[in-house]
Write a protein that binds this DNA or RNA. Structure first.
Lengths: 161, 161
DNA sequence: ACTAAGTATATGAGAGTTCAACTAGATTGA
DNA sequence: TCAATCTAGTTGAACTCTCATATACTTAGT
């Protein structure tokens, strides 16, 4: 039989959907408006910027940006058109491609970072108590590990996003 | 100056993105695979099914399904093609349209509900302690109210989603 | 070596979303 | 009452995402 959600669970579930959607929409709108890129592209640029040499294999980049390979491929194609990323055939494995963040790409990311972080604070961290932030962290960790996902750690020289 | 995220905040933020994305992807894949609809359509059907007469004004439906009017309009157009929803000109305000859930639409929703709820449990509720669910509820409530959003309560005869 | 299977990535079509018009009906106020 | 304005909803274009498929290179097995 179906284990339906009880009243409390349903309220939580709907709140969860609403909250996460509000945050995502806020991020997307802010980035689109101020930096002309969707959030997914921002994440790609961030990951590239943190990689050694600002370069990474496509498949590795896809994993770190939590993107399908197909989505990443399309996205990098667009980023390449803008001159923000360049693709180079991998020497070691000639099937592979390495995406390289260009100077223009880094500049675009740097220009976008401030407004983005502000938005993240505005929509999430500023509205929570420090203890709630800790709780959220544990909750998300539980969800991620149950789903078999993994969170790539932030790089050192990161434009903290 | 930019208030960058510190190390803990960054970890939490990346976990949050990963977790919410994993959940959304799981829901979308499950519904697409088993019921041939994206999650957004499911939400629309749920809201309609809970409305008196299984009917609602487009703008009200958009608000409750957290959708832009444009998105809703496109979505309802597709749902209409499938025979799951019907549109009627509103008598009171002749600019307005009323979306009505058809019997076929209700049947499609009923058929999809079990698998969907299971997926919600699998990805979220089953992996959290009861206390964490309460904490998550409060966290989401804070985010929603800060963002000026609102969560429509569940209807009475709901296919609890 | 050669073939079968596997891996890395790209590509194209189909579908959903966003944004900016656009239509049509309702309101307001002089 | 009539023009200006507002509101409800739709539409089309541009863009992103997904899924299935194709391409090219690599690895395993014999």
């Amino acid at each position: 039989m179906t284990r339906w959600l009880d009243e409390d669970e349903q309220r939580t579930w709907r709140r969860f959907l609403t909250a996460t959607q509000l945050i995502n929409e806020a991020l997307d709108r802010q980035l689109q408006r101020d930096a002309n890129m969707p959030h997914a592209y921002y994440v790609i640029l961030v990951r590239l910027s943190e990689a050694p040499g600002r370069a990474m294999r496509m498949s590795e980049l896809a994993a770190q940006a939590q993107s399908s390979q197909s989505r990443l491929s399309h996205a990098v194609a667009r980023l390449e058109e803008r001159g923000w990323v360049r693709r180079e055939r991998s020497a070691a494995d000639r099937r592979g491609n390495v995406a390289v963040l260009t100077e223009e790409g880094y500049a675009a990311l740097a220009a976008a970072a401030h407004g983005h972080v502000e938005e993240v604070r505005r929509t999430l961290f500023d509205v929570l108590e420090p203890e709630q932030v800790r709780e959220l962290d544990e909750i998300c960790a539980a969800v991620v590990s149950a789903a078999g996902g993994h969170v790539s750690p932030a790089g050192g020289n990161t434009l903290a996003r």
